Amino acid sequence: MKHLLASLLFSTLLISCNTSDKSKATSAESTDAKTTTETVAKTEKQLKPIETDEDLIATALMAAPAESRATSKVIGYNMAGEFVTLKEGDNEYIVLADDPKKDGFNAACYHKDLEPFMARGRALRAEGKSAEEIFATREAEVKSGAIKITPGSALHIYYGPNSMYDAETSKVDGAKLRYVIYTPFATSASIGLPETPSAPNHPWIMNPGTHRAHIMISPLANEEGEN
Rank of each mutant, 00 (worst) to 15 (best):
I217H: 05
Y165G: 10
A119H: 06
R122Q: 12
A97S: 13
T71D: 06
I149V: 05
L96A: 06
K171Y: 01
M216A: 01
I215K: 14
T12Q: 11
T35D: 11
G225N: 13
Y179N: 10
E92A: 03
C17G: 08
G121P: 03
E226H: 15
A41N: 14
F117Q: 05
L8K: 15
T169F: 11
G121D: 02
H214F: 03
E133R: 07
I205L: 12
K112F: 04
D99K: 04
V74D: 14
G76S: 05
T43V: 11
Y110T: 02
F10W: 06
E51N: 03
K48W: 11
K176L: 06
L61C: 01
G225W: 08
G81P: 05
S72F: 04
A28F: 10
G104Q: 01
T43K: 15
T37E: 03
H3E: 15
V142M: 06
R178K: 09
A80M: 12
S144Y: 03
E115I: 04
E44H: 11
D32K: 15
T36I: 08
M62P: 01
V74E: 14
K148H: 05
E223P: 01
S170E: 05
N78A: 08
T169C: 12
A221S: 15
F135P: 04
L4S: 12
A97I: 04
R212W: 01
E224K: 13
W204N: 07
K87M: 04
F117H: 07
A70F: 07
D173E: 14
S170M: 06
M1T: 15
K24H: 15
S144H: 01
H156V: 14
K143I: 11
T52E: 09
L14E: 10
A108H: 02
P65G: 02
E44Q: 14
D90E: 07
M1G: 15
N91I: 00
R178G: 06
